[in-house]
Simulated scan of single mutants.
Amino acid sequence: LIIFQHGQKWELALENMLYKDKVIYSAHTQYQHITVTQRIIDPTKTPIYSLFINGRTQFSSSDEAIYHEMLVHPAMAASGKHKNILIIGGGDGLAAREVLKWNPETVTLVDLDPAVINFFSKEQFDETRGIIINAPLLKLNQNALTDPRLHIIIGDAFNKINDLLKKQLLYDTIIVDLPDPSHPDLNKLYSDRFYQKLSLLLSGDGAMVIQSTSPYHAKKAFISIGKTVKAAGLRHVEQYHTNVPSFGDWGWTIATKNGKSPLNRLKTRDTTPFNDLAMRWLTKELAIAAFQFPKTFFSKQQFVKINTLGSHILYNYHQQAWQKEQDSYSLP
């Protein structure tokens, strides 16, 4: 009984020992473990909040705008229309926040974990402390998940998009904001078959973007994602990157089915969206510059394999890269 009564407090105390910042929320869901931390550097300034899933950083409020603006706005700007948008993942509502700045008619969001959606859409009152523990996070995503234009589908995206295909729906922009392929179950959501399905949902003048891990820390995995999208039948596939302090150098893959390439569309786009949509960081010039890589970055891409469904190619690339990274920081 004592363990039952105090177990949650003890667990929170143990987690506080594992994270450098104060743990203000911790929960086991059906699919994963969620941790939210708070860092107060200056009492006169807003604290920094970070989300961890299974111990891996998902975002920090200090720089998430860099990540989410780079994820959303190049693809939106490269799309011919902005009426119907599809987001795969993004249960924290931060990608949806950016999408809603384009005033779409509908946004469909597909996410696996209802507990994540609930935490980022409904007030969570802590009776012990007498506070709404997720109030800062609801403010951060600007209550995007409760916007009436947003339709949420709970379930495995690999299967759920079959329902969208059966309805013959088309989307002007598709945004894939999934965790890194650090688990075999996630590998299928980075496979050629999954991207083929998404291509069928993409309108002719639309654009699709995929978060693609770090081109610096996981170069083969990054390149493999780009090659896999190309193998899925998308006509123009390009990649871009920028520095997100919480993650380091981070990258995305962007693709179009017809017409001009994403980069050429961005170059001919006027600057109005970048000036008028209340972006905190991104400009048109920064977006275009992000498509530049070191001279020899892609020189050995012919040796990088495509992530076919069931192959676990990408999962293995990702595991090898991050294991090597961890080993390089290990003590002898």
Results as ranks from 00 to 15, higher is better:
277 L>Y: 10
328 S>H: 12
214 S>V: 01
229 V>W: 05
319 Q>M: 12
213 T>R: 12
73 H>W: 09
16 N>P: 04
260 K>Q: 12
140 L>Y: 05
157 A>N: 04
65 A>N: 15
268 T>W: 08
126 D>R: 03
223 I>D: 05
181 P>K: 05
243 N>K: 13
328 S>E: 10
86 L>K: 09
291 F>A: 00
145 L>A: 04
267 K>R: 15
258 N>E: 15
58 Q>S: 04
19 Y>N: 04
232 A>I: 01
103 N>I: 09
101 K>W: 09
209 V>F: 05
217 H>G: 11
36 V>A: 08
14 L>M: 13
327 D>K: 14
153 I>C: 06
285 E>L: 00
258 N>A: 06
268 T>H: 12
26 S>P: 04
176 V>T: 05
54 N>H: 09
181 P>E: 06
158 F>T: 01
13 A>S: 13
120 F>M: 03
173 T>E: 08
34 I>R: 12
92 D>Q: 07
30 Q>C: 07
240 Y>M: 07
169 L>V: 05
307 N>Y: 10
255 A>R: 00
324 K>F: 07
244 V>M: 10
279 M>A: 04
276 D>E: 15
6 H>W: 13
171 Y>D: 01
52 F>H: 11
32 Q>T: 07
80 G>Q: 14
217 H>D: 14
228 T>Y: 13
131 I>R: 13
123 E>D: 13
150 L>C: 02
244 V>E: 11
118 N>L: 04
232 A>P: 08
260 K>Y: 10
192 D>H: 11
23 V>M: 03
52 F>M: 01
149 R>L: 01
310 G>H: 07
288 I>F: 04
76 M>V: 01
141 N>T: 02
186 L>R: 10
216 Y>F: 15
254 I>F: 04
78 A>L: 06
113 D>T: 09
186 L>F: 13
277 L>D: 06
221 A>L: 02
96 A>R: 08
173 T>V: 06
43 P>Q: 04
311 S>N: 06
202 L>E: 11
162 N>C: 05
319 Q>T: 14
227 K>S: 05
161 I>C: 03
71 L>I: 05
194 F>E: 11
195 Y>D: 11
46 T>M: 09
56 R>W: 09
272 T>M: 06
238 E>T: 03
247 F>V: 07
22 K>R: 13
64 E>W: 07
132 I>T: 14
147 D>V: 00
131 I>A: 10
150 L>A: 01
220 K>D: 15
300 K>R: 14
98 E>R: 06
21 D>K: 07
198 L>V: 10
293 F>S: 08
91 G>W: 00
253 T>L: 01
227 K>A: 03
105 E>N: 15
264 N>V: 00
30 Q>T: 13
38 Q>W: 06
238 E>W: 02
304 V>T: 08
3 I>E: 15
279 M>N: 15
105 E>Q: 15
61 S>V: 02
273 P>L: 01
293 F>T: 09
83 K>M: 07
115 A>V: 13
316 N>V: 05
91 G>S: 03
212 S>G: 10
307 N>R: 09
63 D>V: 00
52 F>S: 03
311 S>H: 09
321 A>T: 01
180 D>Y: 07
199 S>G: 14
237 V>F: 00
190 Y>F: 15
298 F>D: 08
173 T>F: 02
125 F>W: 14
